[in-house]
Amino acid sequence: MSRWTVPLAALLAVGGAIAVAGDTDKVKISIQTIPAMTPPAKAEVRMGKKTLGLILGPRKPFILERPRDSGPLDLVIRAEGFLPLHTRAYTFSDSKLTVKLTRIADKPTLFGYRQAGPPDAGTTSSAHPDAGAVDPLIPR
């Protein structure tokens, strides 16, 4: 399996189904870590500067309640000895957000890790930026 792909079997109900008439106005999002991944004792769930709550252990998820269809939530999950994880929860319906945290020592196992190379390697932009029309035709 590619390092890019998280073990999907463990990641339940990313966004859930879409709400239909008759559903309640609020959704519950259960946020937990994957037990098989030697989870930390506790993990903090933050949104921006605000701490929303704590995941206290494998079977002690943090439950977040939000108005239905109120837009996605950009969350950061932090735990001591692990790399911070930036993830997203959706508010379409009740859902479970199960995340895999990575120990700092396991950083090389992640997609995007690269051995230090010579300075400025691979950081230049594309040969052909897509912009700057000199004399655009105006479409209608």
Partner: peptide, 21 residues
Amino acid sequence: ATDIARQFLRDDDVFEIRIPS
């Protein structure tokens, strides 16, 4: 509907792409 989730490392943070549809 789908349940795609992918992680990648950027600097010292892990970013997770979650795609519900």
